[in-house]
Design a protein around this nucleic acid. Sequence first.
RNA 1: GCCCGGGUGACAGAGCGGCUAACGUGACCGACUGCAGAUCGGUUUUUUGGGGGUUCGACUCCCUCCCCGGGCACCA
Length: 470
Amino acid sequence: MAIQVYNTLTRKMEEFEPLHGNRVNMFVCGVTPYDYTHLGHAKTYIAFDTIAKYLRYRGYSVFYIQNVTDVDDHLINRSKETGESEAELAEKFFKLFIEDMTALGMDSVNLYAYATEHVPEIVEQIEGLIKKGYAYESNGSVYFEVGKFSEFGKLSKQVLEKLRPGARVEVDENKRNPEDFALWKAEKPGEPTWDSPWGKGRPGWHIEDTAIAMAYFGEQYDIHGGATELIFPHHESEVAQAEALTGKKPFVKYWLHTGVLNVKGEKMSKSLNNFWRVQEALEEYEPDVLRFFLVNAHYRSPVDYTDEVLEEAKQGYERLVETVQNVRFALKMQAKDERTSEDDEVDKAVKEVMQKFEESMDNDFNTREAISHLFTFSTKVNAALSKGLTRESLEGVLKAYRTIGDVLGLFKKGIEKEDVVDGLMEFLVEMREKAREEKNFEVSDEIRDRLAKIGILLEDTKDGPRWKKR
RNA sequence: GCCCGGGUGACAGAGCGGCUAACGUGACCGACUGCAGAUCGGUUUUUUGGGGGUUCGACUCCCUCCCCGGGCACCA
């Protein structure tokens, strides 16, 4: 079965067939690094990180580019506030973005392409658009003439005439029509500029994406991702620019859009000032819990963020991690030599969970459903664990968690080996066991309580005591 | 006003033209335990926003109304 993806361009589920065999060219709208990354950004980037990981798992060779908008109004304004240059600000916040996202397990991007490093490509595209009659120069700026591109609106399903009422289009006497958008903005005092055939200036918002994408992918490519809020005008304008320039359609075969993160029913955003920085979130929750929270919803669904929902994610995720730790513990303490029917059951469950995981992910990357199979699997594993399993079965289970965990970006902590604290803990556990044998529960409980205070949980099981970091 | 989503149990949230409406969280009961924890088994509430239509059969498809969110030239 092939992968099915929901394409915003057609508003339908489609079979995923890349343009060039095994190669998948994927572009996702990156950040404008003028401020801290918040959970809303994370939702989108974690979604596409997971999608890239799954495509690679399925054998595709994915070339994943994220652009970095390191010149724009936000950066210029922020620079005026803080006195730092646009370049300094961009570097600082991009670095923080990478730190935050790395903490959340984003590591699938092949290339971060800076807008300012692609000015020649941008200029070349604009020249091409002027030559073809889709763009015009006016007082040092260049605008795309939307009315010339008859298919404008096909991605967002907008009709140009009906967009005008209520629209807050910037008034600009340099434009021929209010809906025209800037490809090149003429120099303004105090702003960073580059040379161009139209004098000094800087790129408009939409052009960097098409210039960068074409520089690396050619005139058409497979996947363009971003949040739904970007469909109009940003992605619509990209389609117009690219297809007007090359005449090749479609510019992008599959448009994928993530639902936004809401807070109390409203979009998390800087302008509403209801955002939660990734850094702040990381102070309260394990990175894995945050990632679990984000992938435990379908990427297209909007997600409402509340304390309750995050707490629920924490509980649920810990249950899965607990299972992984149960298996590791069993591997250490009580792996059996002889196979029993329990082993057959577990082996079957492993095959089943892998198959169902793929089915769910094939269905438009349905991570939510994939995770539901993981819960069912965990229940089966835990049940079988009490009866004992062979080393082979236990390792098979771990491998399933590792494989699925690698795609979803989870379970890194639960699966990796514990550190040198092991020896020390062994000693403490032994001492406590002695006390328990002597029914000296005062001492045994004190050891456990003190450990609990430093975040180590000690549990007595029928196969002996075990400990874990909270 | 226009375009796009969505309305399902206490909460969160999938799926499917007919099968017990998944999975999770919460609550409760039981097993296990010196206690705790983890785990397992079980219970818990939904005729799927209102109305109409298509169909032998609709939560699922169509129409209409109501409500919520996103976009309408800032934005992940």
